[in-house]
Simulated assay, not measured.
Amino acid sequence: MTLVDTNVLLDLVTGDPVWADWSIEQLENASLRGPLLINDIIYAELAVRYDRIEDLDAFIDAAHLVLTPVPRAALFLAGKVFTQYRRAGGSRTGMLPDFLIGAQAAVQKIPVMTRDIGRYRSYFPTVKLITPDR
Rank of each mutant, 00 (worst) to 15 (best):
L3D: 04
V4A: 02
T6M: 02
N7G: 06
V8I: 07
L9A: 05
G15P: 14
D16R: 06
P17F: 04
W19Y: 10
W22L: 00
E28Q: 14
N29G: 09
S31P: 00
S31C: 04
R33G: 09
L36F: 06
L37Q: 02
N39Y: 08
N39G: 08
I42H: 00
L46Q: 06
Y50H: 15
Y50C: 05
R52Y: 12
E54W: 11
D57G: 12
F59D: 14
A63C: 12
H64M: 12
H64D: 10
L67C: 09
P69K: 06
V70N: 08
P71R: 10
R72V: 11
A73C: 05
A74N: 06
Q84P: 07
G89V: 11
G94S: 14
M95V: 14
L96C: 08
P97M: 10
P97L: 11
G102I: 01
A106T: 08
V107N: 08
I110V: 13
P111N: 10
P111G: 04
M113I: 11
T114H: 06
R115C: 00
D116R: 04
G118M: 12
Y120A: 01
Y123D: 10
V127L: 03
V127A: 02
K128E: 15
L129N: 00
L129H: 02
L129P: 00
P132W: 01
P132K: 02
D133Y: 13
R134F: 09
R134T: 10
